[in-house]
Amino acid sequence: MAMQAQTQPAEAAIEISRLNKWYGTFHVLRDIDLNVAKGERIVIAGPSGSGKSTLIRCINRLEEHQAGRIVVDGTELTNDLKNIDKVRSEVGMVFQHFNLFPHLTILENCTLAPIWVRKIPKREAEETAMQFLEKVKIPEQANKYPGQLSGGQQQRVAIARSLCMRPRIMLFDEPTSALDPEMIKEVLDTMIELAEDGMTMLCVTHEMGFAQAVAHRVIFMDQGQIVEQNTPTEFFNNPQSDRTKLFLSQILGH
């Protein structure tokens, strides 16, 4: 069952082997092995403190790992700053708390990195940004500031901001956890649309409906380890480990 990851198409977007990380003496990630193929969509689930956010934050080195290898799109993450910046410009990330830049307009949020990292002319960057703002259905907000938008709108801007860098991989770190129920759907719809375009996605989320709808694979983590991984159908209907069964009974119970 766990071998399924290795039977994916050969072209790997992310290769993680024997990844270990400690916060001080706390062993937060233990011997993680994970290969993600190009175009694959993975949902990572697990109780809080299981290391799932830490894992995806290691992929663009917002967190440093102490042992093991992470290769993203052919570039290994080491202390080499050039490699880190290269990986970061290829990997988009969406945060739980959006983290838009409050002093810049929506449009400026979206064009900042393309202009300064990719060196794209301003006009071209603005055209691209407007395309993506249309894709997330808020082009009319382009000249407002983030503080004037609702949470769901801000998160959609955050997704558009990442897409403007034309990333090959998108990481989502609990993108809907800080949102009101009515706004969760608009963000999930955007993510589903993105999935339909064939984007490689790693998504930490508690939205099990989303997992069932778009994920190729669901990974369940506990205590810094991958406990179980499977296709969504198998994962939800036929969980193998006791820990997974307990988790599913708790979040799907009501």
């Binding site: 830049f101 900042l112 990292v117």
Partner: peptide, 30 residues
């Protein structure tokens, strides 16, 4: 400044000086 501002700048691939100049300092100075 919230840590998220640094992280968002990093995640977009801005290097240290660009992140400081474009994202961090305008807000911190304000």
């Amino acid at each position: 400044l919230p840590k998220g501002q640094y992280e968002a700048a990093d995640a977009l691939g801005l290097d240290y000086w660009k992140a400081q100049r474009l994202v961090i300092l305008p807000q911190a100075l304000k």
